[in-house]
Write a protein that binds this DNA or RNA. Structure first.
Lengths: 336, 336
DNA sequence: CGCGCAATTGTAAACGATTACCGCGCCACA
DNA sequence: TGTGGCGCGGTAATCGTTTACAATTGCGCG
């Protein structure tokens, strides 16, 4: 079931078969029909490896994320995959599981597979391999953390802006004792959110109580523990901003367990606006950062690079919006 | 940077290079060292397409799911991907988005890519292409719905058993007016859960009130609407079992909005035990069906088929466990 | 010293496509 | 009638590996 078999059956050469099937080159309609018939009869489909070998292009793109299990990613992956499918490309998905070493093997394998481009959203980086990719002219799209340059674009998430919106929101509501539960601070994205928080409080001339800034893990468990700690403190915040929705969900649990109510006793803000945010009790006020947008933007950026040899690389920004739901309210009384 | 360049640099033939790099065939240690040095110096890595072309094997496996966005899948994908990585295989991920046509194009592309195996967890099937795959001897692992045969295994989820556990649980707690919110009934998996529900009630000699059995959509929204309908009914159930966790979360919302409490006024059971289940208010009693287990099992089954030409195909069962949390309680009073 | 065998290494044919290049008719035009 | 051009289609090189088979080398032994 290769091109040769078709050629024999249609009594033409393999060159003609190729020309017909790819609709390039000129073939007499009558001949073409014979070829198509033969191909159909033999239930032929091309061998993409042979194709890739000669053309040097694989119609394969890679997507590297740190952890698909993070509820932020599925929507991103979905959009990305959907677009690659539309373009008749296939998608190789890998997760680094936050390990630089896994990142390296993934990249290396992409190199071996001659992927036409790679999009990556992780903090783990292997500079050496990234260089290698870029030296070989493989288009690269970074999300979150990365650079822009020849054959590489960067999708920048405006975390800081989102956090500013959140801070402004609770300050508007009269809160002055504002806490923050960050993600793991070895993550660039977590640090930048925390820093933005501190900065924005300063901007409002509010002293930052270091007791109010806790490190979480971007998981519900981490949020719960951090909130526990906040509630045990001598002074309590009246509003807490979380580095992501899951942290907020964990925090919600801790607050509940302490017998306090949201938003009456404590206002709570999440980040990401994952689907669950509308279904917590109360529904979560959160900073929306559309994973779908990011996926779409990144994929388009990648194909821009793939399609245009001379593309310079671009910096794309993902804006955030504050979604006010039920977990924040005007300050009513101070706690303790 | 191909095998020929290394050969020249190491002053050997390409055959020797290949033998050295693949560690098969015998090569004098001294020669091997020269080859390795040359390979390292040239920063060589093999072209997997050329390899695949000659060997006929691609070290690529496909994973087809209906919708990565369904919170049940990420954990499954993660495990699956993790195992394929361990085996030095790459993973092509595609979602069908519940469309048979997308399923077809995905399968066809896998065929073209000469994947060494495919695992699929969707209801959409293209019998013709499945036959094609199996005729070409491509190992297939079905999850949820499928068949077992030559070169194909089936990971069976014991939905019915899980539903039985759920029914028994609420019946044990004294409930007799038990409702059910199903998934979309065009899905095999949803139907089998609903049927198991009806059957098990009968087994307890409890009449099945058709008003109590509602169709949802496996989403929070669907659960909310279905629960709204249940609560508006003349008679209300005192316990409701949901076809998945998201449905239960939606239901929880509807109950909340109606001013009722879980579990005092109404017991609620979910299905899947997705991560959110422990973080709802109250924490959700649910039937655990470990997505991680499924991913692991399916991947192992797939590699069993890949590794053993003569493997007959197996039927693997995924057991369920009831996880009792706070959303179910002994019946206290009837509503209305 | 010559032979046989084992240990190495080289040569070249695959794998399945794409494509540059060439050849063959045929027609129009001078 | 010769010739240039065009439409069509075939031949064969090419992509980067693997591997069957052949060739070479070295060594032990009679």
């Amino acid at each position: 079931m290769n091109i040769g078999a078709i050629a024999r059956r249609a009594r033409v050469s393999t060159a003609t078969v190729s020309r017909t099937l790819n609709q390039n080159g000129v073939v007499r309609p009558e001949t073409a029909r014979r070829v198509w018939r033969a191909a159909a009869a033999l239930n032929y489909f091309p061998n993409s490896h042979a194709r890739a070998l000669v053309s040097g292009r694989s119609r394969l793109v890679g997507l590297i994320v740190s952890d698909i299990t993070n509820p932020f990613f599925p929507e991103l992956v979905r959009q990305f995959e959907s677009l690659t499918l539309q373009r008749q490309y296939d998608l190789i998905l890998t997760s680094t599981d936050y390990q630089t070493e896994r990142m390296s093997t993934c990249l290396r394998r992409m190199l071996e597979r001659k992927v036409d481009g790679v999009a990556l959203m992780t903090s783990e980086m292997d500079e050496g391999l990234i260089d290698e990719l870029s030296r070989r002219g493989v288009p690269l799209v970074f999300m979150d953390v990365g650079q822009v340059g020849a054959r590489m674009s960067h999708v920048v998430m405006e975390y800081a802006d989102g956090i500013r919106q959140a801070v402004d929101h609770v300050v508007d509501l009269g809160h002055r004792r504002v806490g923050f539960i960050s993600g793991p601070l070895d993550l660039h994205s977590a640090r930048s959110r925390r820093n933005a928080f501190v900065e924005r409080l300063r901007h409002h001339s509010i002293a930052v109580d270091t007791q109010f800034v806790r490190e979480g893990t971007h998981t519900a468990e981490g949020g719960q523990q951090a909130m526990d700690a906040l509630l045990r403190g001598r002074r309590r915040p009246t509003a807490v901003i979380c580095s992501n929705d899951w942290t907020a969900i964990g925090a919600l649990h801790a607050i509940d367990a302490a017998g306090l109510r949201v938003p009456e006793d404590l206002s709570l803000v999440g980040f990401d606006d994952t689907p669950i945010a509308s279904y917590t009790r109360p529904p979560l006020t959160t900073v929306r950062m559309s994973a779908a947008d990011i996926g779409t933007t990144a994929c388009q950026a990648l194909f821009d690079l793939i399609d245009h040899e001379d593309h310079k690389g671009a910096r794309l920004r993902i804006r955030t919006t504050l979604v006010v739901r039920g977990s924040t309210a005007r300050i009513q009384k101070s706690i303790r």
